[in-house]
Computed example of a mutant assay.
Amino acid sequence: MSISFEELTKETLYIALEIINSNPQYNVMENGNKTRSLAELNKELLNPHTISAFIKLDDTYIGVIDYMLENPKDSLPWLGLLIIHSDYQGFGFGSQAYELYESEIKNRGLDKVRIGVLQENTKAQHFWESLGFVYYITSNAENESGILCYEKQISCCQ
C-alpha cells in the first residue's frame, strides 16, 4: 500500500467535505461547528494561495493536505492542514503523508517547514512533536484562542 497526493478540484471538493466532516471534534475546535459546508471548503481549499490535495492510500481518498510553499509573512513553507478521515486514523497514514510532503519540500530545495496548531488540540501537538517539530511561539489571531507555531528543520537536498 502506498500513499500519494492527488490535486483537489472543484469537482472533487465534496470528497474533501466528507473527510473533514468525519472529524467533528477538530471542526468544533477550528470554527465552532461540528461540520463544514461546501462553500467554506471552496473558499479555504480552492484558493490561489495554497496547494490542496487529497491523501490517497492506493486508490482510496483518506485525507486532505493543504499548504503554502512560501508564506508571504516569513517566506517559508507552511503546512496549513493535514487531516485523515476518522475511519483511517491510528494506522500511521498521517505520518506517511507528512513524510511524502516533506520529501516534496526537500526536492524543491527548501529546508524548513512551519505549522500552526490550535492550542486546545493536544492530540495534534503530540503528533507534530513526534515528527520532530519544535514549538517556537504562540500567535493570538483575532477571535481565536492561541495558535501554537512549530517548525521543523529538514535536511535539504539529496
Rank of each mutant, 00 (worst) to 15 (best):
N42H: 12
K43E: 12
L45W: 06
P48L: 10
P48W: 08
P48M: 04
I51M: 05
I51T: 15
D59T: 13
D59I: 10
T60C: 07
V64F: 12
V64E: 04
Y67R: 01
M68L: 13
L69G: 00
L69H: 05
E70V: 05
N71L: 07
W78P: 00
L79T: 06
G80I: 06
G80P: 00
L81F: 11
L82Q: 04
I83L: 14
I83V: 15
I84C: 03
I84V: 12
D87L: 13
G90A: 09
F91D: 05
F93R: 00
G94F: 06
Q96E: 13
Q96A: 14
L100C: 04
L100K: 14
Y101A: 02
S103G: 02
K106M: 07
N107H: 09
R108A: 08
G109D: 01
L110N: 01
D111P: 00
K112P: 00
R114E: 06
R114A: 08
I115W: 06
Q119F: 09
T122V: 13
T122C: 09
K123I: 15
K123S: 12
K123Q: 11
K123M: 10
A124N: 12
Q125A: 12
W128H: 05
W128E: 06
W128M: 04
E129P: 05
E129Y: 08
E129W: 10
S130E: 13
L131K: 11
G132M: 12
V134T: 13
V134Y: 11
Y135K: 09
T138I: 08
S139R: 12
S139T: 09
N140Q: 06
N140S: 04
A141L: 15
E142I: 15
N143E: 14
N143Q: 09
L148G: 00
